[in-house]
């Protein structure tokens, strides 16, 4: 009998994965980034959330490899004297958490709405019209609008206090139609098949047919778009933070770090904004490359370039 480990080792998935350098290199980078982000409290040399360890005299020190750089701060310090490396690690953790949370929310909304509209014909027209309309606006725009409305509704101070869950909500609300459309398309294909017919003949309830019979068969396209959606969500979060509708400076994400450093670029302190920028691009890039690979692997027909 073959063990599970052997099955994984012999699978076509792993075979193709290990033969595509783009895939495994980006996977490795993503793993390193994610692990170091979540291990930030353990591995970061300083704690940016603890004001007692921060000395304003250390502000705006350049990275260690330049002439004025100091050994204690490898990547320099920001305008408040926080260590860039630690702040970036903590920031990346927030960015990733918000990205994943937003994708879970949009997947949940999208799957529920997609199932309903694919299986119950009466709801289809209205739900898909809403999705169409929302898709025809850009998701960025919807996210910015919802963010602006929330900020007006809660006031700036309250908004900053609950920024992280709010951002998840905003991005989730802005991007669910992608999922709804994908799920609906596969539900429409599945519902005609015989096993659904059979389930209906046995007399199972609609809810059970949708949840237990159709849903599992619609999940592979959902997985395909999820990877890219995480990258999109992280990018939306960065954009919102950049506009002042995101994470506050006391608990910065990568986006708000870039914003904060932007003013100092004119005085030559490029590292405060460029370094988090590079990290953000690297993170999004590897997720996108991985997403492309997964899409091509699971659905060769979709492959267009």
């Amino acid at each position: 009998m073959r063990t599970r480990w052997q099955r994984i080792k012999d699978s076509a998935f792993l075979y193709h994965f290990l033969r595509d350098p783009v895939a495994y290199v980006s996977f490795a980078i993503l793993m390193v980034l994610t692990i170091s982000a979540f291990a930030a409290p353990l591995i970061a040399p300083h704690n940016p959330y603890d004001p007692t360890t921060i000395d304003i005299m250390d502000a705006e020190l350049p990275p260690a490899w330049t002439d004025e750089g100091s050994r204690t701060f490898v990547l320099g310090t920001d305008e408040m004297g926080r260590d860039m490396l630690s702040t970036m690690l903590y920031g990346m953790r927030i960015s990733i958490i918000i990205g994943l949370g937003a994708v879970f929310l949009q997947a949940f909304l999208g799957i529920v709405i997609g199932l309903l509209s694919g299986y119950i014909r009466r709801l289809d027209n209205i739900l898909m019209r809403i999705a169409d309309v929302q898709l025809s606006f850009s998701t960025y725009m919807i996210a910015i609008f919802i963010g602006a409305i929330f900020q007006t509704a809660f006031g700036v101070a309250n908004y900053e206090k609950i920024a992280a869950p709010l951002l998840i909500l905003i991005i989730g609300l802005a991007e669910w139609p992608q999922y709804a459309r994908t799920v609906r398309a596969s539900v429409l294909a599945e519902r005609k098949k015989e096993y659904v017919e059979a389930a209906r003949v046995i007399g199972l309830s609609k809810l059970r047919i949708m949840g237990r019979h159709i849903l599992p068969n619609t999940l592979s396209p959902v997985l395909v778009i999820s990877t890219v959606q995480v990258a999109n969500a992280i990018m939306s979060e960065a954009a919102l933070s950049f506009l002042g509708l995101g994470m506050p400076l006391t608990k910065p994400s990568l986006g708000s770090l870039i914003t904060a450093g932007f003013e100092y670029i004119f005085s030559g302190s490029w590292w405060i904004t460029i370094l988090p920028g590079i990290l953000l691009v690297l993170l999004i890039l590897v997720i996108n490359l991985l997403g492309d690979w997964v899409r091509d692997y699971l659905n060769p027909k979709l492959y267009k370039g």
């Binding site: 460029i274 920028g277 996108n288």
Partner: peptide
Amino acid sequence: IVGVSIPVFLTAIMLI
């Protein structure tokens, strides 16, 4: 694909 991954405000900041 690199271009898709760079947020527009970051491009702007780097240009500046």
